[in-house]
């Protein structure tokens, strides 16, 4: 299957509708270089140590009688607890694609691999941008996730993650506005203005930006 079924384009397309895990306790495949990366010579994108480690973790559960027919393909529910389909012996490409299609249908609306990759990369970019004080980039990355997948019901948990990041940024912006008010009350009008300008300019799209704009207009003129 490693050389015939898994490289098949229809199988690759079907594999994007599930999460795939490879279990093989052989550690003698050697490695192969791909550009700057090095993977198991038999399994692109995986290291021997990973497929060796994956094998014993669930094999007792999946093969309670102890014998593991080779190969065996199993489809599980998303929590990994319940078997939806099993094939002992080689699963042909079409057979595997059909089984995946049926399991996906039974599971209900889900997120495809490419969409999930897009969302996780954007959220990671947002995390990095907020951490590095590149607030504009962080807001843009979160908005990309919300605008692109906002109407996809299965994407709700990812949308909520993006919204939470925006809420946190908005909260920080409001804290800065409160700080600017303290400065203004103490007579430091220029200091207050500088903070409000920064929040207005860098937090656009969030409520705190509009609030900063109003506060700026309401500032007394510096003497």
């Amino acid at each position: 299957m490693t050389s015939s079924v898994y490289p098949n384009k229809d199988v690759i397309a079907a594999s994007k509708q599930v999460v795939n895990i490879f279990c093989n306790k052989e550690d003698s495949h050697g490695t192969k270089k791909y550009g700057t990366e090095e993977w198991c010579a038999d399994n692109y994108g995986l290291k021997c140590e990973d497929h060796v480690k994956n094998h014993p973790e669930k094999s007792n559960k999946h093969f309670p009688k102890g014998t593991i027919p080779n190969p065996t393909t199993i489809l599980l529910t998303p929590d990994g607890e319940t078997e939806m389909w099993r094939k002992t012996g080689k699963a042909e490409g079409k057979e595997l694609c059909d089984a995946i299609k049926e399991a996906v249908k039974k599971t209900g609306a889900g997120i495809g691999r490419d969409e999930y990759k897009f969302m996780t990369e954007k959220l990671a970019k947002a995390e990095e941008a907020f951490g590095g004080n590149k607030v504009k980039d962080g807001i843009a990355a979160c908005n990309d996730v919300i605008k692109t997948f906002g109407k996809m019901p299965a994407a709700k948990p990812m949308i909520e993650k993006a919204e939470k990041k925006l809420d946190t940024a908005n909260e920080y912006g409001r804290e800065q506005i409160a700080k600017s008010k303290e400065l203004s009350t103490g007579g430091d009008i220029e200091g207050a203005k500088a903070i409000l300008k920064e929040i207005y300019a860098n937090y656009k799209g969030l409520d705190c930006s509009k609030e900063a704009e109003k506060e700026m207009a309401a500032l007394p003129k510096a003497k």
């Binding site: 509708q17 279990c23 094999s59 393909t73 990994g80 997120i111 999930y116």
Partner: peptide, 18 residues
Amino acid sequence: AIREAKERNVPIHVAYHK
């Protein structure tokens, strides 16, 4: 695998080989 499958609400395809 389980974390991603839950987050995406998709089945897990397990391949046992020797």
